[in-house]
């Protein structure tokens, strides 16, 4: 018989057995061992870097030597608030808001269809249809739009074939949203932002809609609501946390991006480009650091508001 007859068995012995007993007796030791490596990495290296960056924004740059002066001052923040820089901030925030609103409008039907009507194989296909663009290369996506918006590219060709070139030209001659061509206009920048961040809006909205029981829609119809009323009074409020969760992504990602406006858009700067320019060629790390504080502060308020709306449960 391989089985011992006593009620309490001896330990396995050996180093592993002893260590296992120790961890069993003191789970906190194990917990600490598990947490130390990731905490060292994220808590020390990463957070440390962030704070170091933040600290730099309280230094300033010497106008004559171009070197950083290591004494605490708010001079850099005064510089941040000059009209040209405020312009950059306002432009970026407006763009982020426009992208977010458009993403919500485009995402809703896709998410709604995927959540409510897609079944079985179609459901999987829809899911992949959203996941693949989400995960495919950011640069490739931007590159694709460079191809689309080029003067000799497909979009101009389509307008030409439809004999609508006049319409495009009329649009481009409009102030602010227009420009010499789509690829150097705010509209171009907007389209690429919308395209690149759209999946980040679809997924949370879909997740929120999945949780709406189908019979709520039927109940609303049963109580005499038209489809439009059902949408406004039942679906939209229930999908709202998802929309807010998605907007966290679209908003934050637009605020911090510096590559899209650099490749497709007018020459006017966005926050990300300003950060990049100041830390790079200008060597003005304090001002670059102060610029990075802007999206952090904006997102801080945004997240605080989103949390009050209960958006985090939809993430």
């Amino acid at each position: 018989m391989s089985v011992p007859q006593t009620a309490i068995l001896p330990g396995r012995g050996g180093a592993a057995g002893t260590a296992a007993d120790l961890f069993w007796r003191n789970p906190k030791v194990l917990l600490a061992l598990l947490l130390i490596p990731p905490l060292l990495w994220l808590g020390i290296i990463y957070l440390g870097s962030l704070f170091a960056l933040l600290a730099q924004s309280f230094f300033s740059i010497d106008e004559f030597s171009g070197l950083v002066k290591y004494e605490l001052t708010l001079k850099t923040y005064r510089e941040l608030l000059n009209p040209a820089n405020l312009d950059i901030i306002a432009r970026t925030v407006l763009m982020a808001a426009a992208v977010t609103i458009a993403a919500a409008i485009v995402a809703f039907p896709v998410a709604y269809y995927a959540a409510r009507y897609a079944r079985g194989r179609w459901k999987a296909l829809f899911y992949l249809g959203i996941m693949l663009p989400l995960w495919s290369s950011y640069l490739v996506k931007v590159y694709a739009w460079k191809l689309i918006l080029a003067k000799e590219g497909i979009l101009n060709w389509v307008f030409e074939k439809l004999h609508l070139t006049w319409l495009l030209e009329a649009y481009l001659s409009a102030p602010v949203i227009g420009g010499n061509s789509l690829s150097v206009s705010y509209t171009g920048t907007f389209l690429v932002f919308l395209y690149v961040w759209l999946p980040f809006m679809i997924l949370p909205v879909q997740a929120a809609l999945e949780r709406v029981p189908g019979n709520l829609v039927e109940a609303s119809a049963d109580l005499g609501a038209t489809p439009a009323q059902t949408f406004r009074n039942v679906l939209l409020p229930l999908a709202m946390p998802g929309v807010v969760a998605g907007s966290i992504f679209t908003f934050s990602l637009t605020l911090g991006d510096y590559i899209i406006p650099q490749i497709i858009g007018s020459s006017r700067l966005f926050i990300g480009q300003a950060v990049y320019a100041h830390q790079g060629t200008a060597g003005n790390i304090p001002l670059a650091a102060a610029f990075t504080v802007v999206p952090v502060v904006i997102m801080g308020f945004y997240l605080w508001g989103a949390k009050r709306l209960g958006a985090f449960n939809a993430l």
């Binding site: 011992p4 006593t6 009620a7």
Partner: peptide, 15 residues
């Protein structure tokens, strides 16, 4: 448990 003290004995050492 069967006359043997069980406090402090982990589950994997109890028959």
């Amino acid at each position: 448990i069967f006359g043997q003290t069980a406090e402090g004995v982990p589950p994997y050492r109890r028959n």
